[in-house]
Design a binder for these strands. Structure first.
Lengths: 139, 139
DNA sequence: AAAAATTTTGCAACAAAGTTGCAAAGGTTT
DNA sequence: AAACCTTTGCAACTTTGTTGCAAAATTTTT
């Protein structure tokens, strides 16, 4: 069943290609966020590395996925919720990064508090990243 | 005047070398956070790239600087406040990243709110990154 | 203050991550 | 199904980060 992926692609005015379907499907099936490496591994030899880069880029531009800040070097991508439109600053997320297994969780139910900024500063997006140990990895 | 840098290095039981003095000095003089690229550019041909990597690594281990999460790929480093000890999770920062000029500010006066996590999740560090336009770049 | 011991640096070589141009293949439209 | 537009994969390249090792610098010892 990959209807959902196709519908999402069409909704965002993207051609429906094999690569896009498979990668989007992978996101839909994954609980957390994915790095480029995760996807490359999962897809095996099926697609060129370059294609994956470009697909992720496209998805970000169209507002299908968004990037999650992290202190380590890896860019993580996660599905946007429906109300998340391209170009706009999205709804602000709270993310949890497990230091043990490396999984990134989107904590949708927790809301990001408003931060009071110094004069002259304008907030556009607020990212809150909590790192620690997730429920699967606790001793 | 680079006494401050020397004192800091000694306090952290590090040999006082030219590279370390200069890089630490650069941090002391910079308002915001720095990427590896910033430092490499600033230092010119003076030091080897590898040395800069290793110096930053050492500084992080010793708790002189810390990394700041970001959604783009670049790792940013900023000076830790004095109470920030190596190994421990530091005092939690709020950071502001300007989308215009790229400067990262440490908003020390704002405190990070406690986040309520789902059952089984343990928080270790909380990073809050606000991005938008800083006071220098506002129209 | 010089010698011995330890650390740090720079080089070289490599590994990984990301980008660009372009022709071929695949999707879309009429 | 033909014409058109978009996407893909290849190749070549740039950038970023890592590792081992001998030379140089720093610290400690005498």
């Amino acid at each position: 069943m990959q209807e959902a992926a196709i519908i999402t692609l069409k909704k965002h005015e993207l051609s429906v290609t094999d690569t896009r379907k498979k990668i989007l499907q992978f996101f839909l099936e994954s609980a957390g966020a994915l790095t480029h490496a995760d996807i490359e591994q999962q897809m095996g030899e099926a697609f060129d590395r370059v294609t994956i880069y470009r697909t992720l880029q496209t998805f970000v531009e169209k507002g299908i996925i968004h990037t999650i800040p992290s202190a380590d070097n890896a860019i993580r991508y996660a599905l946007c919720k429906d109300n998340c439109a391209a170009g706009h600053h999205h709804d602000d997320h709270v993310h949890f990064l497990c230091n043990d297994c490396g999984t990134t969780y989107c904590l949708d139910h927790v809301s990001v508090p408003k931060i009071k900024l110094p004069k002259g500063f304008t907030a556009n997006q607020t990212d809150l990243v909590v790192s620690g140990v997730c429920h699967k990895c606790e001793a």
